[in-house]
Amino acid sequence: MSDTNVQRRQFLKTSVGATAVAIAPGMLLFDMAHGKSEAVSSKMRWGMLIDTTNCADGCNDCVKACNKENGLSGGLSPTDSQWIRKVELKDMRSGRAVSLPMMCQHCAEPPCVDVCPTGASFKRADGIVLVDKHTCIGCRYCMMACPYKARSFVHEPLHDQKPDVPRGKGTVESCTLCVHRVDKGQQPACAEACPNKSILFGNLNDPESEIAKKIRTVASTQIRADLGLDTGIRYQGI
């Protein structure tokens, strides 16, 4: 998919470019000199490894960082958006308590994308699952389909959104893995904010990356692995 996209884009660029010669010769030259517009590719598969043994019960720093980065209100009513939440778990047999952050798992086989009637829910070539809010009609079928309850519906008109994180009433949203930061080469806000370094972010497809190495050496799980969705967010210690 990504390859075709790149090709198509190249094609478009050439043909648009040809037109552009007629319209704005100066601009075209500028563009070519600068031509570093690269589409994301499947060489990457962004993911996270979350070490729950390190994750402190009652700590909420990742959630706060997410709210700040993405301009969420931080409200906790059932109609407020929560892209990431802390879940407290108790093992029903041993009684062991676990605390972990839960968000969109960036499934490789995302049910939300399968069910979305307009294709607004989509997976980028690098594995990040997003909602294109320009085509989302707000049917909420994706929320019904997501096994992790990762999505929120914007129930009210919003104001003063972050320039990098457009959000609006009547559309569905969820964790973007801070795509606007990732595209700049930065880490997601939650990973950066965690005081215990429990969230390791990286490229699962690069065998040399820290996350890939760690996944090879420690025991990690995918939540509801039985559903076979191949999630990009992995957990350690549950």
Partner: peptide, 21 residues
């Protein structure tokens, strides 16, 4: 440009709404 940015992650196009603003 919006489609390229949202779907392909190309963020340095020159027709950016943010730059307009």
């Amino acid at each position: 440009q919006r489609d390229e940015t949202v779907h392909l992650g190309i963020r340095d196009g020159k027709y950016s709404l943010k730059v307009c603003i």
